[in-house]
């Protein structure tokens, strides 16, 4: 079975999940959430205004009609305007995506590389003092709240020492990468590397225990070649899959970093939207991020099948 057929089937299988996400978001905002008109109208509410707003939002129509409106919004990408700023939602996402990626992509790449190198080192030295020390350190590092890292890091490295700008963003990619994004990325790594190291270490150790490693030894190969060729090639399968599946978790960290460092990304926009009860933005964000997650999962699945000759596109 070939690649296109596989992709086709997997995309087809995504449809029920996406419908579920749409339904969940819809029920949450249009049914559980109650009448948004009161939120919007605020304190000056008089019955006419509320009726007017309700009509504008379409919430005076039956639920199924509202669902249709929601679905058409998703399909066309037109979620209307933000309730708070009147800016079109599509415009918000278009302009906020860039900064988020400037933060996310280097974080993902660096995290993966650092984690693999450290995990290989500790796996090679398993049971040693260094291994145990690093494992305990990583547990402690994981236990400190991301918030504490950010608050202290921002205060010490930006406010006190002045090594980095406290917050801000520019229009130039290079300047952002070298100036504004550095501290957030480093702080993000502090939190995300430790769990990855632990996970990759177990992946590698699982492979080290396999029979084929014994065969490789019996052939007279060096420990270095066994680890870097035989073991790593096998461990790469769960690692790569995990990197892509771990994207949503990284996203969460990016939310907070964007907010603290005033980076005009999607995460900060979502947090502000939650603070302001800006429903259109949250709804759009949830649905689109879900789509992106599903695509990332598909990509992970695809890579898994490329890396593992035992699995076919079936």
């Amino acid at each position: 079975m070939n690649l296109t057929a596989f992709l086709f089937r997997r995309l087809w299988q995504m449809i029920p999940t996406l419908l579920g996400v749409v339904l969940l978001v819809f029920l949450l905002f249009n049914w559980v959430g109650g009448d948004p008109a009161y939120v919007l109208a605020g304190k000056m509410a008089n019955p006419d205004d509320i009726a007017n707003i309700r009509h504008q939002l379409g919430v005076d129509r039956p639920l199924w009609e509202q669902l249709l409106i929601f679905v058409s919004q998703i399909v066309t990408g037109d979620f209307g305007n933000s309730w708070a700023t009147r800016e079109p939602v599509s415009e918000i996402f278009r302009t906020r995506l860039g900064p988020s990626l400037v933060l996310l992509v280097p974080m993902l790449v660096l995290e993966t590389l650092v984690a693999i190198v450290v995990a290989l080192t500790v796996a090679a030295l398993r049971g040693s003092v260094l291994d145990r020390t690093l494992m305990v350190t990583s547990t402690v590092m994981m236990s400190i709240s991301l918030l504490v890292y950010i608050i202290v890091g921002q205060y010490v490295f930006a406010s006190l020492l002045g090594w980095f700008p406290v917050k801000g963003w520019s229009d130039h990619l290079w300047r952002n990468l070298t100036t504004y994004a550095v501290l957030p990325i480093l702080l993000g790594l502090m939190v995300s590397v430790a769990p990855s190291v632990r996970l990759y270490r177990t992946f590698i150790l699982d492979e080290v225990g396999q029979d084929y490693v014994r065969t490789a030894r019996a052939k007279g190969l060096s420990e270095r070649r066994i680890l870097l060729v035989h073991v790593l090639r096998n461990a790469a399968i769960p690692i790569v899959t995990n990197v892509l599946m771990g994207l949503p978790a990284l996203l969460t960290g990016a939310f907070l970093l964007e907010r603290f460092f005033a980076i005009p990304g999607i995460g900060r926009e979502i947090i502000m939207a939650v603070e302001r009860s800006d429903f259109p933005i949250i709804k759009a964000a949830t649905v689109y991020v879900a789509m992106a997650t599903l695509l990332a999962n598909l990509l992970g699945d695809l890579l898994y099948r490329v890396l593992d000759p035992r699995v076919h596109f079936e």
């Binding site: 396999q210 029979d211 084929y212 014994r214 065969t215 490789a216 019996a218 035989h230 090639r233 096998n234 399968i237 890396l307 593992d308 000759p309 035992r310």
Partner: peptide
């Protein structure tokens, strides 16, 4: 000295 094992499937590296 050469050696062969009980489980040929797991004794061969699956990805090469």
């Amino acid at each position: 000295i050469g050696i062969i094992f009980q489980e040929p499937m797991s004794s061969l590296n699956p990805v090469f």
